[in-house]
Design a protein around this nucleic acid. Structure first.
Lengths: 131, 131
DNA sequence: TAAAATATTTACCTAGGTAAACTATTTTAC
DNA sequence: GTAAAATAGTTTACCTAGGTAAATATTTTA
């Protein structure tokens, strides 16, 4: 395997594991947090809006969102179009959001601390080039 | 989610999907190819050697290797130490290896074509910094 | 020889994918 | 204008791919 690809996949995997480790105290996984954060920013989204925004497939979002309903983070109600389901954060989620965000921000800052702002921008633009 | 992390995770995911698409004609998945390539280079490896080399956990390798046995790519036999299992490529795998490698190399070249050699090295070193 | 360490496996999670089904809505053809 | 066809939103079934925790068997160490 090309060393660039190897490094890319490995870095992504190791970072995901570390995010999971940090989120453990909130009883959340990285992807669950990604969805929560996404809904938080948009206030309310249909399932389709979520998976299109996050660039993943529909079944992935169905699964994660229903898990988040079970965990009490998210509420689902029917939309005007009776095919669609609208997702929003629960009261409890809005209360807990800040401390989870704090955990994640702290972790992210720690991780990118080895890069200058310029290096961070450079890394992003290099990644975009091979996408 | 930090834009750098988001870009990193998304790029890794999209690239994996594209590798899978390219490997479909050989009836293989990206991770299976990674293990085959690894064994090919080392001629023979124990399960532990494989997972330590690839930096993943043991159960991941147990699963993938046994799937590769089913698919006829790999053979397992006991080692001198009766706890360990030695893995090597089958006759058929050695025959088919070159054409799969061709597919993968072609894809990898296409993917990194947008980057100069210098940019590739830079990207690798930036990734190493946040690991 | 008992205890610790090592190699592998099993059970059970999250997280992603495709293909195909189902339902509701929109378009198209007549 | 309405019935048929196409499209859109979601779900289900079934894969790969990763993880942790704990069990089992073998080997090393104390």
């Amino acid at each position: 395997m090309n060393p660039l690809f190897h490094e890319l996949f490995q870095t992504a995997r190791l970072l995901t594991n570390e995010v999971n480790l940090n989120l453990k105290k909130h009883d959340l996984y990285a992807s669950q947090w990604t969805v929560i954060f996404c809904i938080y920013k948009h206030k309310q989204m249909s399932l389709t809006q979520i998976w299109k925004y996050l660039n993943v497939e529909a079944p992935t979002i169905t699964r994660t969102v229903y898990r988040l309903v079970e965990l009490g983070w998210v509420e689902i109600r029917p939309g005007k179009d009776r095919r669609e389901k609208l997702v929003s954060l629960s009261e409890q989620a809005l209360q807990n959001f800040p401390e989870v965000e704090e955990t994640v921000l702290e972790f992210e800052e720690r991780m990118v601390a080895n890069l200058t702002k310029e290096e961070q921008a450079l890394l992003i633009s290099l990644l975009e080039k091979i996408k």
